[in-house]
C-alpha cells in the first residue's frame, strides 16, 4: 500500500514539474495564450476574419459569468461588426460540433456621461446661438 503511494506521488510531481516547464517555455495551451485582448469605449468592435476560422460554424459572445448573449453564423471570409454592448467583460468563442476556442476577450467601458453631456451642452449652446444669429440676421436684412 505504502509502495503504491510512493508510485503515485512522483507521478503527480512529474506532471506539475512538466506543466510548469511548459508554461515557462511559453507553450501554454492555445486557448490561453492566443486570446486577443481588446477594449472599447463605444460598445462596438470589429472582429476581423482569420484563415483558421473557416472550420467553425458559430461565433458566440459570452459574458464573464458564462451566459451566452448572442450567437452569429461564421461566413467564410467575412468580419463581424458587433455593436451595442454595455459595460463589462466579454468572451468571443468560435465553436463547431466537436471543438471550440476563445479568440477574443473584450472589455467595454463606455465614455463617462459627464464628458458626453459636456459635448452635448456645448452643441446645444452653439445651436441656439446659430438660430439667434440667423434670426437676427434675417430681421436686419
Amino acid at each position: 500500500m505504502s509502495r503504491y503511494r510512493w508510485h503515485v506521488v512522483p507521478d503527480i510531481a512529474v506532471k506539475i514539474i512538466l506543466a510548469s516547464l511548459l508554461v515557462f517555455a511559453g507553450c501554454a495551451p492555445v486557448t490561453a495564450a492566443n486570446i486577443e485582448k481588446r477594449t472599447s469605449q463605444d460598445g462596438t468592435i470589429v472582429v476581423p476574419w482569420k484563415e483558421g476560422y473557416a472550420r467553425y460554424q458559430t461565433l458566440r459572445i459570452n459574458s464573464v459569468s458564462g451566459d451566452t448573449l448572442s450567437r452569429h453564423p461564421v461566413v467564410n471570409g467575412q468580419n463581424w461588426v458587433i455593436t451595442g454592448l454595455s459595460d463589462g467583460q466579454y468572451r468571443f468563442i468560435l465553436s463547431s460540433s466537436d471543438s471550440q476556442t476563445q479568440i477574443l476577450s473584450l472589455h467595454v467601458s463606455h465614455y463617462s456621461l459627464t464628458s458626453a453631456f459636456g459635448l452635448f451642452t456645448l452643441g446645444l449652446i452653439m445651436f441656439v446661438y446659430l438660430l439667434v444669429a440667423l434670426m437676427k440676421g434675417g430681421r436686419d436684412d
Binding site: H110, L113, A116, F120
Partner: peptide, 8 residues
C-alpha cells in the same frame, strides 16, 4: 455616451 456625443 458615445451616441450623445454624436448627436450634435
Amino acid at each position: 455616451p458615445a451616441a450623445i456625443m454624436f448627436f450634435f
